[in-house]
Simulated assay, not measured.
Amino acid sequence: MSFLIIDNVTYSYKGKKEIIKDTTWKINAGEFHSLLGRSGCGKTTLLKIASGLLKPDNGAVFLGNEKVLKPSLDVGFVFQAPTLLEWKSVLDNVLLPITLQRKPTKEDKERASSLLEVMKIADYQHEYPGELSGGQQSRVAIARSLIKNPAIVFLDEPFAALDAITREELQDDLLMLCQNNKMTVLFITHDISEAVYLSDHVAVMKEGQIAYDLKVTLSKPRHIENRYSATFNDLCLQVRDVMNGGI
């Protein structure tokens, strides 16, 4: 059964040219979907509509059995910039979504520490963001997005500014978290190999519409060997062909 449904959505900025055009897309619970496309194709706008940050001109979005009318407290966000509070410790940054609603409990703090452990940054929980590398800050941002055990996580190019090796390490850590927490994910990226490696489905967006939806047939769990397999390369080539004007 579909968990996130984007149903015939249209959107334009201030009544100008349509950014999203009659778009329908469905994500099942526990699946990892990536949305890929060239700059300006509308993928970040579609993520904002799916998460309730923007209201569509026409159509609707449903999360579970409820229509999305505004951002939900039951979803997690990770953006390209980690957006950590410089005056708060790593641990307090992870706890921020809870602190905004109530005082964190002992159990909340234990969960935050556990997430930092999984993200391989537990030794830095009492440090401040300015003392961390870009990759470490991204790990904190991911942990923060999961502190409330969200129903779905939206990620908008969270690894775009990182070096290749750090990026691959974070991809593997994210996949492990998804598996352990049975997470549903909508992930935005420009990177074809990243999309294929992470995802159950890769959708290619062109001019405000979903032009192609690829089911990724790689085995799970994913490992570094997958990145160099013939199947992986074939899947990446299929997506590349679509982005270059094929299909």
Rank of each mutant, 00 (worst) to 15 (best):
R222E: 13
I27N: 03
L73P: 04
I49P: 09
K43C: 05
S34C: 06
V75A: 09
E31L: 00
H190A: 06
L91E: 15
T10A: 04
V140M: 03
E31I: 00
L47K: 01
H126T: 14
T10W: 08
N93I: 07
N28L: 03
D200Q: 05
C236D: 07
S199Y: 00
G40S: 09
M176Q: 13
T99H: 11
I142A: 10
L73D: 12
L174W: 01
E18K: 12
R240M: 10
I142K: 03
I165K: 12
L162G: 02
S229D: 07
T23A: 11
F154S: 10
Q136E: 13
F77E: 05
V239I: 14
E169G: 06
S138D: 11
D7V: 01
S51Y: 06
F187L: 02
P221A: 09
V216H: 10
I142Q: 11
R144H: 11
T184H: 05
R102S: 15
T231I: 04
M183I: 00
D200P: 07
P129T: 08
R222L: 14
D234M: 14
P221I: 12
A164E: 15
H201I: 13
Y128K: 10
L177K: 01
S72H: 06
K215D: 02
V9D: 14
L214E: 12
T83S: 11
R167Y: 02
R111E: 14
A164S: 13
I192P: 02
L91S: 06
P82C: 14
G42P: 05
K206P: 09
L170Y: 03
S51C: 10
T44S: 15
K106W: 08
L96K: 00
G40R: 07
P129M: 06
S113M: 10
I224W: 05
R167A: 06
P104N: 08
N65W: 01
Q209S: 12
L46F: 00
Q209F: 04
L115V: 05
K120G: 00
R102L: 10
I20K: 00
N93M: 08
D7K: 11
F232W: 10
L73F: 04
V68E: 12
K120S: 10
R222Q: 06
K67Y: 01
D163H: 03
G208Y: 11
L46R: 01
E66W: 00
L85H: 03
K16S: 13
G59I: 09
Q101C: 02
K109R: 15
L115G: 10
T166N: 07
S138W: 01
K106H: 12
A143H: 01
G245Y: 03
T45E: 13
L170P: 08
V68L: 04
L85P: 00
N93V: 07
L218I: 12
P221G: 09
L91W: 08
E31R: 03
I142Y: 08
M183L: 15
I165G: 01
T231F: 00
D74G: 03
V153N: 13
S34V: 00
E110V: 12
